[in-house]
C-alpha cells in the first residue's frame, strides 16, 4: 500500500506492507538513528515524534502514520537551517549523558517531547518523561542532569 509521511520535514510517498511497523519502514529508508531494540514497546530505543508526541515506532504500524509528521533524531539538528544541534543533544554531549549511545536517540526524542510540553520540569517529571527509555550503562543520573540543563538553556533562549 502507498503511504505518505513527512519525515524530518520532507514529504515522502512510500510503499509499505500493511503489517510493516514504522520502525522497520524508517530504518529501511535510511533513518538508522531509530534504533531497533526490544520491538515490544519496553525499551524506547526506537522512539520518534509522531506529530509532536513521542511514540515507540515499533508499536506503530506504518499505515497508521500515513499523513502524519515523523521526527527522528536525525531531524532534530539544524531545524533552524544552521545545522546546530538541538539543545538536548548539546547537553547530552557536554554533560556526559552518552556512554554506549544506543539509547541516546530515543531518550533525546523523549526529552524533546517533555520539554516542548513542560519547559520547566522537576526531576520527578524528567524521570517520568524518560521512564519509557531504558539505559543499561549510565544509571540515568547524567541524562537527568543533561535534560535539566537543556531545559534551562531553552527557557533562557525563549526569554531573549
Amino acid at each position: 500500500m502507498k503511504i505518505e509521511l513527512i519525515v524530518n520535514g520532507k514529504q515522502q510517498e512510500l510503499d509499505s506492507a500493511p503489517g510493516e511497523t514504522l520502525l522497520h519502514l524508517l530504518r529501511r529508508i535510511g533513518y538508522k538513528g531509530v534504533k531497533k531494540g526490544c520491538e515490544s514497546g519496553d525499551c524506547g530505543a526506537c522512539a520518534v515524534l509522531l506529530d509532536d508526541r513521542v511514540v515507540n515506532s515499533c508499536l506503530v504500524l506504518a499505515a497508521k502514520a500515513d499523513g502524519h509528521r515523523v521526527t527522528t533524531v536525525e531531524g532534530l539538528a539544524g531545524q533552524d537551517k544552521t545545522g546546530e544541534l538541538h539543545p538536548v543533544q548539546e547537553a547530552f554531549l557536554e554533560h556526559g549523558a552518552v556512554q554506549c549511545g544506543y539509547c541516546s536517540p530515543g531518550m533525546i526524542i523523549a526529552a524533546v517531547d517533555l520539554l516542548a510540553h513542560n519547559p520547566n520540569p522537576s526531576d520527578q517529571e524528567i524521570k517520568e518523561g524518560i521512564s519509557g527509555n531504558l539505559c543499561r550503562c549510565t544509571g540515568y543520573v547524567k541524562q537527568i542532569e543533561a535534560i535539566r540543563i537543556a531545559a534551562e538553556k531553552m527557557r533562557k533562549s525563549a526569554d531573549v
Partner: peptide, 11 residues
C-alpha cells in the same frame, strides 16, 4: 501517571 510511560500513553 502510573500507566506505562509517555510513549505508550501517547498511542
Amino acid at each position: 501517571h502510573q500507566v506505562g510511560a509517555p510513549p505508550l500513553r501517547n498511542l
